[in-house]
Every structure is written in structure tokens, then in C-alpha cells.
Design a binder for these strands. Structure first.
Lengths: 234, 234
DNA sequence: TGACTTTCTATGTCTAGACTTATTGCTGTT
DNA sequence: AACAGCAATAAGTCTAGACATAGAAAGTCA
């Protein structure tokens, strides 16, 4: 994380400004010197300073406004980033053998909650898929997915027994926008059966919905095995 | 999300490349024209094309390597971003009145799990704080926090009854690095009492740990009220 | 006093050109 | 066939300069 001596100049400048903030040389709400001045101070072009400050603004450390200048954020709303994982890679990264089982795959009319999530009209016919992903034979994640065949006609020819839906979609349906929601739920009867846990067990639930230019592609509810932890950083 | 006609050129280029990927004009693993060619095609400077492609690479859509060129990612590991929220703002954003109550604040020897999380040695003395945050008088979040007084001597003088720890820290201890973990747990006796739910209720748990240049600042376990949903996007 | 206009400044963005550097793929040697 | 050395290439980065534009501050008029 600490920018080494060989790091690009913009990184070094960002690191130095970050240091001045963290070590409270510059305080909350303070206006910092403008780009031109910092450019002189650091012996860099203004574009380079601009890049560095943009970076810190993206991190939430700085507030920048035209003409008004750059200020240290008063209540820095920091942002964190996480990778949307591919189940198989995730399981294999933990040193386990991946396998999966398709529980059901059929076309069904859209249920109300899925309609709400996707914005699709009631009565639409979607492909409904349920599958369980295993690591070393133990249930890892239970997937309950709805796929919009209108935005993705190729679905008809896909065999999710061979390649799991997660990867098939990643490879066949790049999306423009995704929503992810984390929540917790007590395992219901189906969750419990699929994940081989007792009913009521607390599970981390991920809801993920993706869109491309034709509309919603897919929405999925992922129930993770107990003990599962999702990490993010910075 | 769709870059309008007035959007900056780099955004337009990014949007166009994104379109070619989503509409499968360019396929998985394909090498795309190099920056110089795209610059000519789009009538822009190479730096502008570079900015656009960097953006897409950060999104995970492209893989870029020196000399080897730019390729469409085969298994795009997409990234999503969320804001690390300030409890009070979060509650007020939902139109509720914020209040909080400090349950306990004392110095205690570090427990094992906190030592593991922070990397601090066993035997360290930390400030241990427990508080509940309420929205319209109903429990919203139960906070169990450990603060490293070594990295943050000012803690001694802080009154968390007046300003909650979350905001005090945001304003007094900007961090260089943060870890966030999501998991689920059944409410134990204390969780149940604090959040006024029945034991065993599934709760979304957030663990957040922050560091500055002096070492770990604080680590906190946040137990959210049932029904709480954490959202991320893109 | 308040509402409108103008001016001016700091950031936002782009350009053309240059230099740096990781990698690839070739070449000639063992 | 294996390997070392070398040149070509595409991305990574920076610079100096330019123009655009939001919005704060000052000035103008009713």
C-alpha cells in the first residue's frame, strides 16, 4: 500500500497528500493549495497532480469543486471494493475440489419479488435455475437464479450441467450494470436441505442482479454455507 | 450509467468499447486494436484512449499487458464498490431520528480474536466500547469496538456519549487501509438483548478494521438489525 | 434590500509529443 | 532442443500548454 520510491510520480504525490491528512498536518475542512501550486512544490506537471488528487477524491478523502478548490473531506465517506467472485475459482482457491449439481431448470412465470428486483412486468416467462455448488463434496453455496430469456436468447441452448450458470453467464453475457445486496437470513426448509444445515441456521445471503443494454439479464439469490465470510478492502 | 452526448471524451470511448464487448463485436480473449489505432479511430489523443481503457481494465472488463496489448477478459472478475456508511447518516437517510446509547467503555486486555484481526500482541491494553444505535428509538445496530490507544492517544479524552465513536473516529483518525468482512450469525444472548430480537435470529455481521501508519486503529463488530440490507453497485 | 449580471478562478478535460519499461518473439549459439 | 541475448512493440507515465466550465465573489441595478 505504501508507494515505494520507484512508484509513479502521481502515486508518490497521492501518498504524500494522504500522509499530510493522516498525520493531521492538514485538517478536516481545510482548503489545500491549488493544483498549480502543488505542481510547483512537487516539481510535476499539473496533470500529474490532478491525477493524484482525483485518486484521493475517489477514495473519499478529498472534496473537490471547481473554482472553490480542494478541501479535506469533513466526514470522509470512504469506499471499499470487492470482487464479484466466480464460485468455482473461489472454492478452488481454498484448495477444495469443485463440483456442482443442478437441482432444477425450467421456465416459469416470474414471481413478485423477482419482478420487483428486475423491473420486468408480471407475467413474464423466465428460466428458473436452482443449483448447489460443492467444495470437496460439502455444500458451499445454494444458487436460486432467474434468467431473462428475452435479453439472452442463447440460454435455451445452454447446458448448465456441464458448465455452471455462473461461468456461462460471465462468459456469455457481459453486463453493463450490477447490483449486489448482502443480507442475513435464517435457513428455511429448502436452504437447510440444500446446504445440509439445520433449519434456522444464520446464512449470508447475496442477491445479485445484472443488466445489459437490452434490460435485466439475471437475478440470483446465493445462500452461503455457515462460516462463509465475504471480504472487501480499502 | 449511459454516457450522454455531453460526457467527456474518455467516457464516450469507454462506453463505445464497453458496447462492443457487451454486443459481442469483440469476443472473450480477443486482442483489441492498440491505443494508437484507437486514438486515430476516435479522433482523440492517445492519453485519452489510455484513460478510457484503464477505466475498463479497473472494472475488470479488459486485461492489459505491456507489449502484449489489450485483450477482452476471459473470466471478467468484476468489481463492485460500496460506501462505508456512517450510522447516523444512514439512519437519518431512512427518515428516522438517530440516537445512541453507550453500554460500556473501559480499558481491557485484548481478546484472542481481536489480536488475530489486528495483529497486535496478546496482552495489549485496548479501549473496549459497546454501544447501540437507534432509529426512531428502535435498535438499528449493535457496535462492539476495540480501539488501539497506542495509535490513537486522543481516545482518552473522547466522550462517546456526546459524539458516537463512528463519527469521532471518522473525524479524528483518517485511516490508510481498511478491511471489511460480511458474515451472518445467529443472535447470541447479548445480541438479542441489545437489538431486542429473539435469540437465534439471523443477523448480518460486519467486521471492520482500520490501520494508519502507526498500526491498527480500531476493529469493530457491527450486528445489524434483522432486515438490514447492505447494497453495492456496478 | 434583494435579484440579476459579470468577472474571475480552480478544477475538468484534452492534445501532441516524449521517454520508460515489461514482454514477446526472433536470432544465433551451444 | 534448449538457451541466452537482442530488438521491436504496446502499454505506462509524464510534460507543457490549451480551452471549457462550474460556481464563488464582486459589482449593478431596481
Amino acid at each position: 500500500m505504501t508507494a515505494g520510491p520507484t512508484a509513479p510520480k502521481a502515486q508518490l504525490i497521492a501518498a504524500e497528500v494522504r500522509r499530510r491528512i493522516v498525520e493531521r498536518e492538514w485538517l478536516q475542512g481545510d482548503r489545500i493549495p491549488d493544483e498549480a501550486d502543488l505542481a510547483v512544490e512537487f516539481g510535476a506537471a499539473r496533470a500529474t497532480v490532478n491525477k493524484a488528487l482525483q485518486l484521493l477524491a475517489d477514495e473519499g478523502l478529498l472534496d473537490r469543486k471547481r473554482r472553490a478548490g480542494t478541501r479535506i473531506a469533513v466526514n470522509p465517506v470512504r469506499k471499499a471494493t470487492f470482487s464479484i467472485p466466480i464460485v468455482r475459482e473461489q472454492i478452488e482457491a481454498e484448495g477444495m475440489a469443485y463440483s456442482h449439481r443442478v437441482i432444477a431448470q425450467r421456465d416459469s412465470p416470474i414471481p413478485g419479488d423477482v419482478a420487483a428486483r428486475t423491473g420486468l412486468p408480471e407475467g413474464s416467462l423466465l428460466t428458473h435455475l436452482r443449483a448447489v455448488h460443492y467444495g470437496d463434496g460439502k455444500p458451499f453455496q445454494f444458487e436460486d437464479r432467474w434468467i431473462n430469456r428475452t435479453a439472452l436468447p442463447q440460454v435455451a441452448g445452454a447446458d448448465f450441467r456441464a458448465l455452471n450458470a455462473n461461468e456461462w453467464l460471465v462468459q456469455n453475457a457481459p453486463y453493463l450494470h450490477a447490483d449486489v445486496e448482502f443480507s442475513a437470513a435464517n435457513a428455511d426448509a429448502r436452504d437447510a436441505r440444500m446446504l445440509q444445515v439445520r433449519r434456522g441456521q444464520a446464512l449470508l445471503i447475496l442477491h445479485r442482479t445484472t443488466w445489459n443494454d437490452l434490460g435485466p439479464i439475471t437475478t440470483v439469490r446465493l445462500a452461503c454455507h455457515p462460516g462463509y465470510v465475504m471480504s472487501a478492502a480499502s
